[in-house]
Design a protein around this nucleic acid. Structure first.
Lengths: 194, 194
DNA sequence: GTCTATAAGAAGATAGAC
DNA sequence: GTCTATCTTCTTATAGAC
């Protein structure tokens, strides 16, 4: 990786954290200056506008999500195991969820108010999970339409739990939601094998 | 109501709409100037800071919520009916939920990032619903601890559905969530009567 | 590539006239 | 009570030196 690419990556990483922890609108380029030690002008050299930087952050997150989902596909052989792993993600990330909410949900919620094209770019992160979840339900024997609906409901439950955990600084809702989602997976597993 | 009170109310109403539709941080005092036709200085005369205005908006929302819950208590005689009415609220408000998200959830999510005292003030809106929901579950025969947990899960589902409906501009998740919550109420009703 | 300097505007909050 | 005018700070974006 060239020096320019390294610098570019440092900026994206700093912005990624800031957008998550402070929100996109509340994060300023000067915050990135503070974190990276780079000058304002240098950051502009790599990203001509704040929206450009947001796009780069979302693209990086999407790549990370895709890599995560592919690793789950390789690690687990059954859709039930994969869906269970998705649910457990909430437990693994619970400290961050409590402190800052869901990185996808909070960003989409924030950008959705602006009714701009940024919102649809952020929504693409949801799409990756929904498509993947739907694939698992399809593989478990559901129809295409059922799979899409169940994927939406699965993600919806995760988002609700994340939001309340963040609001109350408490992981009880997360733990109960994970248990519910796991039970759902087990039920699905039994229906499939019967 | 005196002229001063009327002006004060106009400001609060305009801010209430703006904070909901654009978000708190993205709403400026100049926006309120545009909506009300009042001068910047006059708005400052009633609310010395933007945070003061936020507090007034939250207080008004809390009063509205309390009035709503009390009216449900009077209109419906059983906890099952009341919980069903809560679920149906999502359908009644679906157009606004799709366009701007949940007025409580999106505000709490936004303010939660700042980690300030504002977040806990906004969270008090959730508390009103959670306490009321827990009361219904208690009245339906649940233990105090169970009631609190079920109230959290009920609100969590509503929040998840609102967030996804807002993200996708689609009410399908809302409709399915409402059905699930209603089924939950019916199950609860049967368990109670048995 | 990286920096400093600065433009140009918007934001919240204040002062004081009417 | 309501207004205009201004202050101060912060933000994004640009220009140009090194």
């Amino acid at each position: 990786m060239s020096k320019g690419d390294q610098t570019r990556q440092r900026i994206i990483d700093a912005a990624d954290d800031l957008f998550y922890q402070k929100g996109f609108n509340q994060s300023a380029v000067s915050d990135i200056v503070g974190v990276t030690g780079l000058s304002k002008g240098n950051i502009t050299y790599y990203f001509s506008s704040k929206d450009d930087l947001l796009k780069a952050v979302i693209d990086q997150r999407k790549k990370n999500i895709q890599a995560l989902l592919e690793s789950w596909n390789e690690t687990f052989s059954t859709p039930t195991e994969r869906l269970t792993r998705f649910a457990e993600m909430l437990l693994i990330e619970k400290n961050q969820l409590i402190q800052y909410g869901c990185p996808m949900g909070s960003l989409i919620s924030e950008l959705g108010k602006s009714n701009s094209s940024k919102a649809s770019e952020a929504r693409a992160m949801f799409d990756l999970f929904i498509d993947w979840l739907a694939d698992q339900f399809s593989e478990a024997g559901c129809t295409r339409k059922q799979s899409k609906q169940m994927a939406l409901r699965f993600l919806s439950q995760a988002q609700g739990a994340s939001l309340l955990a963040h609001a109350y600084g408490d992981d009880e809702v997360i733990r109960r939601t994970v248990q519910d989602l796991k039970d759902w997976c087990i039920t699905l597993s039994k229906e499939t094998s019967s």
